[in-house]
Simulated scan of single mutants.
Amino acid sequence: MVKSTTLQIFLVVAIVSFFGLLVIHRSLNIGAFSKAGKFIRKSVLADQAQEEEVPDSAGVPDDDSESDEDSELDGDTEFEVGGNFRPGSDDPAEDTWSNVRQRLPKALIIGFSKCGTTALRTFLTLHPNIVSPIEEVRYFNFNYTKGLDWYRRQMPPSTEDQITLEKTPSYIMSPIVLKRIYLFDSRVKLIIIIRDPIVRLQSQYAHSFRNVPEGARKPDFKIWVKGDSSENRITHFVGYTKYIRQVYDQFPKDQILVLAEEDFEQNPLSVMKEVEEFLGLEPAFSKEMFYFNKEKGFYCFNREHEFFPTVLKMVKVNSRTGCLGEDKGRDHPDIDEDFHKELVQFIRPHNEQLFRLIGKRIVWENFE
């Protein structure tokens, strides 16, 4: 009888323990599924947010253009429009984490080549609310078929308070590219920088023959400028008006900022402040960020400034001097007096058209 009672008690305890463990196990599973569910829901929301930022595309007909860029474009491809949907969260700490991610640009430096676009982009990255990829992405002309997801992945991580800025100076050369940009985001801010046309020709010449061995013969500057026809290369490199007018035809003027390379070269701080205001950013630039390098002949980053370690992570800069790469500040070819007069006479009317279009006059040394 005692044995039987003991056995009964043992069975009851075992059954109760079994059901107790079952309840605990089930409770733990429910908690795990609940957490997993929350994680999945958040992931879905994040994916939806990504999709919301890229609404359906719209087709754009092909255009005729004299630009070299157009041969790389497919006018029948679809164009995608930008957006600004952002997911919310009840957890502030979680918002801080999810807020940092790769975003599509809100501002573009679209032109012109050999006008200081690299230096401009580089100096702008000193602003804590500007992020920018180091390399030219060339999405809207040469990489357009790769899609907006690919474009987004080329951007550095940013917060909602920051502006992602991309630089590809060849964007301005093609009306098809400008249409693509407009349909991507009709509110995007566009920055254009121009330069004394004769100095730009000299800079392009130096760039074109940068890899010619020392002592090797280079083509005469005059022959190179005239090219195959008497006005071919000149009109291409001095015809700012045609290309800026295309931008004005596509975008409101208050979204376009035209800068002069000479102003940037002589007083970078004033130009940085102008860009700050244009982009609607809080002032952050100061004269202590820059110093004039007499050997190079232009401004460089101040290595003593607290921002400099950050600069090294964002731009290609010489850590010893704070200056841009060796390809900046190359020696320009000399121009004989007669050819210089010929260039000035030909280019001056183009300059006058340009000044009327942009509504301001720029003092260029070659045309004083």
Rank of each mutant, 00 (worst) to 15 (best):
A284H: 10
K313W: 04
Y205M: 02
I194T: 14
V238T: 09
I256C: 04
H305S: 14
P197V: 09
D249H: 09
A284I: 04
S230D: 10
S270E: 12
L259A: 11
D220L: 05
Y205T: 03
E282D: 15
Q255N: 13
K222M: 03
L190S: 04
S270K: 10
L279Y: 04
R233G: 02
D185H: 08
G227T: 12
N211K: 02
Q202C: 04
E306S: 15
G325I: 01
D327P: 00
S230W: 03
D263T: 12
N318K: 12
Q246F: 06
Y248A: 08
R195L: 10
F292H: 12
D249A: 13
E304V: 11
V247G: 08
F292K: 15
H305D: 15
S208L: 01
N302R: 09
Q255E: 07
L257P: 05
Q266I: 11
R195W: 07
E276L: 06
A206C: 00
V311L: 07
V225P: 02
N302D: 14
H207L: 03
A260P: 03
M314C: 08
P283R: 15
L257A: 07
R195Q: 10
A206P: 00
G322D: 15
R233T: 03
V212Q: 05
Q246G: 12
K316D: 08
I198F: 02
P213M: 06
E231A: 05
V247Y: 08
R320V: 13
F301G: 05
E326H: 03
D220H: 03
S208G: 00
Y240N: 10
D249E: 15
R187L: 09
L312C: 07
L201T: 04
F298S: 13
L269P: 12
R210H: 00
E295L: 15
G215N: 13
K273M: 13
L201F: 00
C300H: 06
V238S: 07
E231H: 07
G215D: 08
Y299D: 08
R233Y: 01
C300V: 10
G325F: 01
R320C: 09
T310M: 11
E282L: 08
D220S: 04
R320N: 13
